[in-house]
Design a protein around this nucleic acid. Structure first.
Lengths: 225, 225
DNA sequence: CTCACGCTTCGGTTCGCGCCGAAGCATGCT
DNA sequence: AGCATGCTTCGGCGCGAACCGAAGCGTGAG
């Protein structure tokens, strides 16, 4: 049966953890550059490039050239549906039950490859937008003049972050909402660690907000914990 | 994130051709014994057993003990939906286009691991049921007294086939309909070859009906070609 | 023009896993 | 009881693929 190997080919493509991480990062339809996806998957650029090429060749991913970047995104709604199906089956898989407790902790606050995600990451992003420190156009985040000042007061020199776009948004899988990623997102997370606002648990990607942090998020970003 | 590896685990499970073939054979919800699934996947019993164990442990497959057989079946509707999703994505995958021509030939008549499938297999099964030679109860096929006589006239000694159940049904993937598998299905196919009713193409699993075969199927089983 | 950056290609290593044969276990037929 | 049958477990083999570092290529910035 020829179709056996067809579906096996597709499934095997999703079956490598690195590729699964990339697909999941793209799960909401955004387009991300290869470098970000490499970071998301925790592999080198070389490895990521190979994976992305394979996914594109199989028709799972589309490529959008824009400037010097090459943005990848999910090719069709069917592929997105396939990912949803997998999530559903994975969620009810028996081995999954053991992890559920950890996941709940992760939902509160965690890092998504060196930037803040979970409820904390989403709330911070919302607060920045509400204070008009951040604007999101075309799924790319820009800090306003007020935002740059705000970050300066927070101790971040935005001039040191010369990448363009300076920051990106990333949809959180538990909250299904935006949060800050990219170099700026990473810098904010690092600064939070320096200030002792959040603490990092060694055994997982979960982070928790300290007492000092709660006050800091409140006074600096207007973020009620 | 932990869920990356969750969906990767599930996808990788489906990603091996042998396991994909087994899942596809079970795709319509029937329960099949391990031996049949091994044949479907074209692997040894030892290999099949390992695969089935893994699929069961992951919650993709259920096991139903009945007599000395152990029947496997798809564990949930979600798993079936996952397979459908994969079929959909595989169908629109670019590499798929190359195979479409071959598939059309296969749809007419072909073997499904040593028994007749495709339109021919389905039509034969229908004809047997219509002539009251075959009855299907609980997805297991039984030949009636008239059916045994019919097969005897065809040159098959059904007493030589002492397996119980004597025959099984198998859903054809292109027709989505029943056809005969199991020892009886295999014996019928062999007999068709002996009589020169069908010819087997070496390069694929496609079979075609000869002129003699067309007359034979007509006179013996009342099957109009 | 030149440099820097992002991405891809190439070569080589390592590790996992899919596979089988043989032996072991259980179940039901004789 | 004894044998046959169906399935599983074990040990070992070999292929394939995932990974990285380094080099190559194209694009935009200075």
């Amino acid at each position: 049966m020829t179709q056996d190997i067809d579906i096996a080919r597709i499934a095997a493509l999703v079956g490598a953890p690195a590729r699964a991480a990339m697909l999941l990062a793209l799960g909401d339809g955004r387009a991300l550059p290869a470098g970000d996806l490499a970071a998301c998957a925790g592999v080198s650029a070389a490895t990521a490039s190979g994976h992305l090429g394979a996914l594109r060749e199989a028709g799972l991913l589309d490529i959008v050239r824009q400037g010097r970047h090459r943005y990848y995104r999910i090719a069709s709604a069917q592929v997105a549906a396939l990912l949803e199906s997998l999530l559903l089956v994975a969620a009810q898989s028996p081995t999954r039950a053991l992890r559920t407790r950890v996941d709940q902790r992760l939902q509160a606050g965690r890092t998504c490859y060196n930037h803040l995600a979970g409820r904390l990451g989403v709330a911070l992003c919302d607060a920045l937008i509400e204070r008009e420190a951040l604007r999101i156009d075309e799924e790319i985040a820009h800090f306003t003049r007020a935002g740059v000042a705000l970050l300066a007061g927070f101790g971040l020199d935005t001039r040191a972050l010369r990448h363009r776009p300076m920051s990106r948004t990333c949809i959180d899988w538990s909250e299904r909402r935006h949060h800050l990623s990219g170099p700026t997102g990473v810098a904010i997370y690092r600064r939070c660690l320096e200030l002792g606002w959040v603490r990092h648990h060694l055994d997982s990607r979960a982070v928790s907000v300290t007492k000092i942090g709660a006050r800091g998020f409140q006074s600096t970003f207007g973020l009620a914990m």
